[in-house]
């Protein structure tokens, strides 16, 4: 009678407390006002972050801490694991491309059997987090030792390699693994019966596809390369995009005028015409998705608040990186602020 509620009562209530510790705009504004990185970091004292000299390490530790915390809290380990798998797929992309690059240059692969050497794969390109150990991924990529690799990873890796054999283009690896990651997430979300997440992923895929469409039009790419990069799970079908592919990019606004995304597309195209950059569209997209995510705050029992918090935390860490990198490179307050998105709280 209360199985569902009991399952989530603990983790949701705990998440409610954690939500209060997310950084609000006031805090971010104070960081923006700071003169340098050190001063900006001072604002983070008395927060979840364990402030140190190396802010990259601080941010990556925080990400790890949040994932560890949520894995411990979540009633179903699959819930958090599926988000971790995204990082595996990202790492697979980096490792695979690094290997092919080194092979192309006539040298061996990335270090086998141990963490990849930093001089071969830039450390920052890899996430030190995931559902599978980095060494396992490296071994699978470099030695074909896939025994320890879970099934979705193995299949994805094989498909990426097969596709690369045909095209010999590293972009293929990105495309295939991005598609695989999306398919995996959608299948997991649907399998676990989380409609909220299925819907979120569909919206995200749609908006990324729209951005890909505009970008590939801008760069004069052909239909097949757009089709290659097209993400599954979205509500807007590939055929609709292909219908308007030969027309100017503005046609996409008419094609999807009836959809939820119409205002984002329209504004995005306006800014694109003004300064030739998609960054405004991408910012509007992220804010739209974050607003969708905010609905999770009002769910009393269910996986939604946990997902909302997890993605909000990822968003927060991304924003902190933007601020801190900006401060380290002496960008002005306005330039940094323009790149920030929104907060969940």
């Amino acid at each position: 009678m209360v199985e569902f509620e009991s399952k989530y009562a603990y983790s949701v209530a705990r998440t409610r407390v954690l939500e209060t510790r997310l950084l609000d705009w006031g805090r971010l504004e104070r960081m923006l006002d700071a003169a340098d990185v050190e001063e900006a970091l001072k604002v983070l004292q008395e927060s979840d972050y364990s402030v140190g000299f190396d802010y990259e390490a601080m941010l990556s530790n925080e990400l790890k801490r949040v994932y560890a915390l949520l894995s411990e809290m979540a009633p179903d380990p699959r819930l958090v694991r599926m988000f971790l798998v995204r990082y595996d797929f990202h790492n697979l992309k980096v490792l695979l491309k690094a290997r092919l690059l080194w092979e192309g240059a006539g040298r061996g692969g990335v270090d086998a059997g141990q963490a990849p050497r930093s001089d071969r794969v830039p450390k920052r390109a890899l996430f030190d987090i995931g559902s599978v150990k980095l060494e396992t991924l490296a071994r699978a990529v470099n030695e074909g030792e896939v025994r320890d690799l879970p099934e979705p990873h193995r299949a994805a890796l094989q498909r990426a390699l097969a596709a690369y054999e045909e095209t010999r283009d590293p972009v293929t690896i990105d495309n295939v693994l991005d598609r695989e990651a999306y398919s995996f997430m959608c299948a997991e979300a649907a399998g676990q019966g989380i409609d909220f997440l299925v819907d979120y992923l569909a919206r995200q895929a749609d908006l990324i596809n729209i951005a890909t469409f505009i970008r590939s039009k801008q760069m004069g790419k052909d239909r097949s390369s757009f089709t290659e990069a097209f993400l599954p799970c979205g509500r807007l079908e590939l055929s609709k995009f292909l219908d308007v592919y030969d027309r100017p990019p503005e046609a996409i606004a008419d094609e999807f005028a009836g959809s939820d995304y119409a205002p984002i597309i329209e504004d995005g195209l306006k800014h694109l015409a003004a300064d030739g950059s998609l960054s405004y569209f991408e910012k509007a997209r992220d804010i739209y998705l974050l607003n969708y995510l905010k609905k999770a705050k009002y769910v009393a029992f269910g996986p939604e608040p946990l997902i909302g918090y997890l993605l909000a935390k990822e968003n927060e860490i991304r924003m902190l990186r933007i601020i801190l990198v900006g401060k380290a490179n002496g960008l002005t307050r306005e330039t940094i602020k323009e790149r920030l998105r929104d907060v969940y709280v």
């Binding site: 209530a13 409610r16 407390v17």
Partner: peptide, 21 residues
Amino acid sequence: AIGVGLVGTAGSGVVTEDPDK
């Protein structure tokens, strides 16, 4: 018992993070 138990479960979640509540 079911009702009190459910509130207690949720309460544990909060108290884990914030014992003052």
